[in-house]
């Protein structure tokens, strides 16, 4: 028993303490969070814009050019692996750019935008059509009706799936190692290949991801509860 504890203690020391390796995890984590945070914001902006584009109709009810562009974007992004999108961004589109974080943010943001677009579109469509009709019947324009009436109600609808998307995005950034960014996952991998011991670094990284996402989940739950409150006033 004593021997087992000694062995685990040694593994822990090698993985986290020796040479201040815990600092490497923190550094990796900061890259992960940086990429995820800015990609989430970019994804939200692109997604909202694309959702509105896709919902736009002409007076005769036909699809606009904007809607077609939005459709093409969603099709292409959802139809290709995100790793491949990242590699294309790194090796082809921005091959002269040396800022790995920027490339990752752009790539993940553009990727996430396609999924967010569908979430936002569903959220807007879920708002009762009567709300729009009432707004328009009072003389409000399409845009005013959207801004003051539909979107505030749609936000409540989209919060759970948007939270889901953020969580997926945060974990998906683990592939940035492909373009030689050292995020949390890559840090753990590098340390395990230096110490020839995989258990502690990998499980350690997994625990860190889990804790971060747990915190995110709690925050999103609180936000959702706060917004729901206004329903029952």
């Amino acid at each position: 028993m004593q021997a087992w504890f000694d062995k685990v203690g040694k593994m822990f020391e090698m993985a986290f303490v020796t040479g201040d390796r815990w600092k490497l995890y923190l550094k990796g984590l900061s890259v992960t969070l940086e990429v995820a945070f800015f990609a989430a914001i970019l994804g939200l902006l692109i997604g909202t814009l694309v959702a509105l584009m896709k919902l736009s109709t002409k007076r005769n009810g036909k699809k606009t050019l904007w809607a077609r562009i939005a459709n093409a974007y969603i099709d292409v992004i959802r139809g290709t692996p995100s790793v491949l999108q990242l590699l294309i961004m790194w090796f082809i589109v921005l091959k002269n750019c040396k800022n790995g974080v920027l490339i990752a943010v752009l790539s993940f943001g553009i990727n996430s935008g396609a999924y967010v677009a569908e979430i936002v579109r569903a959220g807007i469509l879920a708002v009762d059509k009567g709300q729009t009709e009432a707004g328009r019947s009072l003389g409000l324009s399409k845009a005013q009706t959207m801004i003051y009436i539909v979107i505030p109600q749609a936000i409540k609808n989209v919060l759970p799936p948007i939270g889901n998307e953020f969580i997926v995005l945060l974990k998906e950034t683990a592939i940035v190692g492909y373009v030689s960014l050292t995020d949390l996952t890559r840090t753990a991998n590098q340390i395990s290949s230096r110490t020839y011991e995989a258990f502690m670094p990998l499980i350690g990284a997994a625990v860190i991801y889990f804790v971060i996402i747990k915190i995110l989940t709690v925050l999103l739950d609180q936000l959702e509860r706060r917004l729901r409150k206004s329903d029952n006033r």
Binding site: D128, E133, A134, S137, L138, G139, L140, Y148, I149
Partner: peptide, 30 residues
Amino acid sequence: IDKIREHMGMVFQNFNLFNNLSIMDNITLA
């Protein structure tokens, strides 16, 4: 048409009050 609709009030079967706004804001928004 928005200008025309300012002069034509409409009342719906399902009321269609704006759920996200107080009664006062429902009335004063437009």
